[in-house]
């Protein structure tokens, strides 16, 4: 079943330009210079029920703009959006009962209240009866290990605990889709890992569809089966994670420490990245030459140490960005 359907979506922002100094100030009042910035250009995609989808791209690519249009925060200029069959622009309220949102950079919680009071507030916002709210809090706090700080004011929590609570608060009304905008921004690696586990557990438990934007490639690698890459407002790739790896993993990197130097420069498909005395770092294009050929060039007796690796996903993605 299709949960999110986006067709020919467009959004343009007008940005006021201001010149320096007094003259510039007066000029910008009388005749403001407006620059149009196309944040989202004609994008199309759809998401199925229960999917965990990663929506990634560099800063200013249009990720947040898209997620904000999907959740009814921004009005699109043209194109159509359907989330659970609801048009976010026209039926914002109706949609908000069905979706949950977490914006990593913006708190939705009351800082001076305990986690428990916060969750009760969100229960009231979504018109859930008190008894029902209590039950859901019990269930969620068990599932997401909130018990130890459920009665602590939010401002006394660590950043990681706080984000955990933000996510739980977004789940109190059992949304069918969860939108996460940079949920792990500013967190340390251990906490990031925890949050990822939590999101996965939620997806398993409730079959919630997850739409996630992030800078952090490891977020995506570990969580999502499908990835959409957006750059300059356009979708440049929409594929499964395995395909992405398969298609773009045509390069291998070999680092070897040798007893005697070997010359690779003449071989087609091999690029020497680094060569320092007997230490070598080479990149192999597997479309042009296969790994066995390369290994045959190195006498096993000659090897002190060897390490063969894939190009990191991060690099693959930045390659995709650069191509566009």
């Amino acid at each position: 079943m299709t949960i999110i359907k986006v067709e020919n979506l467009n959004k343009t922002f007008k940005v006021k330009q201001k010149e320096k100094g007094l003259k510039g100030s007066i000029k910008s009042i009388i005749k403001p210079k407006l620059n149009e910035i196309k944040a989202v250009k004609d994008i199309n995609f759809s998401v199925d029920e229960g999917e965990m989808i990663a929506f990634i791209g560099p800063n200013g690519a249009g990720k947040s703009t898209t997620i904000k249009m999907l959740t009814g925060i921004l009005y699109p200029d043209s194109g159509s959006i359907e989330v659970l069959g609801i048009n976010p622009t026209k039926q914002r309220k109706k949609l908000s009962y069905e979706i949950g949102t977490v914006f990593g950079q913006k708190e939705q919680l009351w800082m001076h209240l305990t986690v428990y009071d916060n969750l009760k507030f969100f229960g009231a916002i979504y018109d859930i009866s008190e008894r029902e709210t209590e039950e859901r809090i019990k269930e969620l706090s068990k599932l997401f290990d909130l018990q130890e700080f459920i009665n602590t004011p939010v401002r006394n929590l660590s950043l990681g605990q706080r984000i955990r609570c933000e996510i739980v608060a977004a789940l109190i009304h059992r949304p069918k889709v969860l939108f996460l905008d940079e949920p792990t921004i500013g967190l340390d690696p251990v906490v990031k890992e925890n949050i990822r586990k939590l999101i996965k557990r939620m997806n398993n438990e409730y079959h919630t569809t997850v739409f996630l934007t992030s800078h952090d490639v490891s977020d995506i690698e570990k969580l999502c089966k499908r990835v959409i890459i957006i750059n300059n407002g356009q979708i440049v790739l929409d594929d499964s994670m395995t395909n992405l790896k398969y298609h773009y993993l045509d390069k291998k990197v070999i680092e070897v420490k040798l007893k005697k130097k070997v010359d690779f420069n003449s071989v087609d498909g091999i690029k020497v990245l680094k060569s320092k005395e007997n230490n070598l770092k080479i990149e192999i294009d597997t479309k042009k030459t296969d790994l066995t050929t390369v290994l045959r060039l190195i006498d096993p007796e000659n090897i002190i140490d060897i390490n063969i690796s894939n190009t990191p996903l991060e690099e693959i993605i930045s390659q995709i960005y650069r191509k566009e």
């Binding site: 201001k18 703009t65 904000k68 921004l74």
Partner: peptide
């Protein structure tokens, strides 16, 4: 509200 531009409204200086 239809014109609301969230945090995308910026004034860029030349």
């Amino acid at each position: 509200l239809k014109k609301y531009s969230s945090s995308n409204l910026m004034i860029s200086k030349i």
